[in-house]
Design a protein around this nucleic acid. Sequence first.
DNA 1: CAGTTTGTTCAAAAATCCTTGAACAAACTG
DNA 2: CAGTTTGTTCAAGGATTTTTGAACAAACTG
Lengths: 183, 183
Amino acid sequence: MTIYSVADGKKIEDSLKVDEWEEAVIDLFLNAANSFGLAKSYGQIYGLLFCRDTPLSMDEIMELLQISKGSASQGLRALRQLGAVSTVFASGDRKERFVAEIRLRKLVSGFLREQADPHIEKGVARLKQIEDLLGNTNSKNSQIRGVRRHEILSGWHRQMSRLLPWVKMIVGKSDRLPQKNKD
Amino acid sequence: MTIYSVADGKKIEDSLKVDEWEEAVIDLFLNAANSFGLAKSYGQIYGLLFCRDTPLSMDEIMELLQISKGSASQGLRALRQLGAVSTVFASGDRKERFVAEIRLRKLVSGFLREQADPHIEKGVARLKQIEDLLGNTNSKNSQIRGVRRHEILSGWHRQMSRLLPWVKMIVGKSDRLPQKNKD
DNA sequence: CAGTTTGTTCAAAAATCCTTGAACAAACTG
DNA sequence: CAGTTTGTTCAAGGATTTTTGAACAAACTG
């Protein structure tokens, strides 16, 4: 339940309104989510939590961002899955509260784990399938062409597999300076 | 104009039909395009050209993939923009023909140039905007919090800027083994 | 246990993105 | 120049994705 002052309708508590700079940050993450192939509301939710020091509950998030229960619930689930938010249980309170993960390395590796790795996995199966279909090919020319293409794709696949660990490495470097990480 | 045999309805010329393995490759690129935020038809077009040795014209692409003129035209434009296909003018023929760029390094750098670099650019402006809005902030606490967040975002921005050149490098390594590249 | 609070699910509505094809422009051809 | 060929553009329609909110389940509370 949000508390309003009777006089001017403005919310009394700071934490129950979104500051101007916060709106800008939220919008930044909205756009980022978008271009990462995630729903905009996910970006908004992450952005809001990113701005805050104290954990927020689902109602607070709904209230602050003006989004529906469904969006909030689904968004928080997805973000948790990505390792971008984590839950916190306030003592003596039943509802769970959420905080943003702000270590870039964690965010990137979570994203890669959920989005890139599965594609690399599926790639193996797809390459196999193409290889199989090359058996069915009648035209000798087409078959030769197909074998070449299969080789190229296999090379790409290998390269991409190599790239990912590097990305995780490089982004990790000096993320928040000296800070021991126990994954 | 496609040539069909009267007997069984199959196309007579090899180049005017899509082999089974080619369909699989096209589907692979369709999916890839999808998860890179590009329209599916762009993936199909690239996939088809990737399979072929000889350049294809726009009608051939439309015919082979069963897509509309609009899709073909827009798709080819976007792919050209990304550096993923290039045009070839057949001697003694008016229509332009297209071939796929198959050097992974080129594909990746084109993609980063068109998709990632602009975001990095816009990031600068966004950070500036947030900085400005922090001036408007009344609550001292919120302002301090905002400054911290701005610092974090600036750090991320720096890291991402550093990352991109590395990605281009790593993917370039031994792409097609010894092959001089004159960009 | 009846009532409340918290969070999930999912079908339908809304918003967004992609494709189509007709109209157009540009360049050639006889 | 009238006609053809080639390719672009863009509004309308189709397809897909996202959001909403009502119905539900689970866990607590008095």
